[in-house]
Simulated assay, not measured.
Amino acid sequence: MNEQDMGKAQLPAREVTIPSHLSDIARHYLMPQPTPPPYPALNDKAGWRGYVTAAEENVLPMLRMLNAQSEAVVVERDANGAQVFDITPPGLSPDNRTVVLEMHGGGLILCGGELCRLMGMGSAQRLQQRVWAVDYRMPPDHPYPAALDDCMSAYRALLQERSPSEIIVSGGSAGGNLAAALILRARDEGLPLPAGLILATPEVDLTESGDSFQTNDGVDPGLRSLMQVNLLYANGQDLAHPYLSPLFGDFSKGFPPTILTTGTRDLYLSNTVRMHRALRAAGVPASLHVTEAGPHTGFPGAPEGLEIDREIREFICSRISQG
Rank of each mutant, 00 (worst) to 15 (best):
Q4N: 15
K8G: 09
K8P: 10
A9G: 13
E15R: 08
L22H: 00
S23K: 01
I25Q: 05
A26N: 08
L30Y: 05
T35I: 03
P36Q: 06
P38R: 06
L42P: 00
N43M: 14
K45R: 12
W48P: 11
G50V: 02
V52Q: 04
N67S: 07
A72Q: 12
E76H: 08
N80F: 07
G81Q: 14
P90Y: 12
S93N: 13
T98R: 05
E102S: 15
I109C: 14
C111V: 15
C111N: 15
L115G: 03
L115M: 10
L115E: 03
C116E: 03
L118M: 00
L118G: 02
R130L: 04
V134A: 05
Y136L: 03
Y144H: 15
Y144L: 02
R156P: 02
E161C: 08
E161I: 10
I167F: 04
I167R: 07
S170G: 10
L178W: 06
A181Y: 01
R185Q: 14
G190Q: 10
A200S: 12
S209M: 08
F213H: 04
V219F: 09
L223W: 06
N230S: 15
A234D: 08
L239D: 10
F248S: 02
F248C: 06
P257H: 06
T261G: 08
T264Q: 07
T264D: 04
L267E: 05
N271Y: 00
A278D: 01
A282E: 09
G283A: 05
V284M: 12
P285E: 05
L288A: 07
A293P: 10
G298A: 09
P300M: 07
E304P: 00
E307L: 08
E307T: 11
